[in-house]
């Protein structure tokens, strides 16, 4: 019962992140949404590992936690070094 409540909260969190990704208004805002989305996914995989009783899913969560950080850093680098399509100069 409490596990389903846990999953419910995580699904709501994913939806709120997607709202921010869709809404913007600027590229960094979307990246914040994506960053949080990846964190929520790591948590989601861990909860799913417990629900299904398969320990192997935790490895997936580990890899995702490693990759997501690189993604955010790459986006930050991109934003700083020139990609600013919302700026009208």
């Amino acid at each position: 019962m409490i596990l389903w409540l846990t999953i419910g909260f995580l699904v709501a969190a994913v939806l709120l992140c997607l709202f921010r990704v869709a809404r913007g208004p600027s590229l960094p805002d979307r990246v914040v949404g994506l960053d949080l989305l990846s964190s929520v996914t790591v948590g989601f995989i861990a909860v799913y590992a417990v629900v299904s009783g398969e320990m192997i899913y935790i490895d997936v969560a580990t890899v995702l936690a490693l990759i997501a950080f690189l993604g955010t850093v790459a986006f930050a680098y991109f934003i700083e070094k020139g990609g600013m399509p919302w700026r009208k100069t």
Partner: peptide
């Protein structure tokens, strides 16, 4: 204990997502 910890974690993530959705600036 495990279920309670995970519930608390999910609640915190929900609050984080709510904050990301409704805070006024980046």
């Amino acid at each position: 204990l495990s279920a309670f910890l995970m519930f608390l974690g999910a609640l915190l993530m929900f609050i984080a997502a709510l904050g990301v959705a409704r805070m006024p600036d980046l």
